[in-house]
């Protein structure tokens, strides 16, 4: 819990790692749901393949930023082979740090960047 209150001064995560963390968010999600959510929150700009998703999941698991959820939302309807992942307290803290980094970036660039027409 201490890690959640006092997030480590971490270097920025890779973009893919941030996408996976934010796609899981407060939910418990399996690989396909994570992939679909990344596509949704990036407006279709990012479509990760299975290898990229699970390589990232592996690192996030090893780093203690996500964990496997024991229970599944609906065992009756769900494929038993599916594994669900959720953020740990540390993962939430790191995700919050990343979002704050984005906020700072957006605030700093908003005055000029939004004047440029989208391509």
């Amino acid at each position: 819990m201490e890690a959640a209150e006092r997030p480590p001064a971490t270097p920025p995560l890779s973009r893919t790692a941030v996408h996976v963390l934010l796609a899981i968010g407060p939910e418990e999600r399996h690989g396909y749901a994570i992939t679909a959510e990344i596509t949704r929150i990036t407006g279709g700009a990012v479509r990760l393949g299975p290898g990229a998703v699970y390589a990232t999941i592996k690192r996030l698991l090893d780093d203690g930023l996500i964990e496997e959820a024991d229970d599944r939302p609906d065992p009756e309807l769900d494929d038993q082979r599916r594994r669900y992942y959720r953020l740990t307290a540390l993962g939430r803290a790191v995700a919050a740090t990343e979002v704050r980094r984005f906020e700072t970036l957006v605030q700093a660039s908003r005055p000029w960047a939004l004047e440029v027409p989208p391509t």
Binding site: P8, T10, P11, L13, S14, A17, R47, L48, G49, P50, G51, A52, A55, T56, R59, L60, D62, D63, L65, V94
Partner: peptide, 27 residues
């Protein structure tokens, strides 16, 4: 095509990852 490209890109990276600290959080 995307699946093939995904394997082609991530499989070598995973092999390299076995030999070094490949964590998302490292400094």
């Amino acid at each position: 095509l995307r699946l093939l490209l995904d394997v082609a890109l991530t499989a070598p990276a995973e092999h390299l990852d076995q030999r070094r600290v490949g964590h998302s959080l490292s400094r």
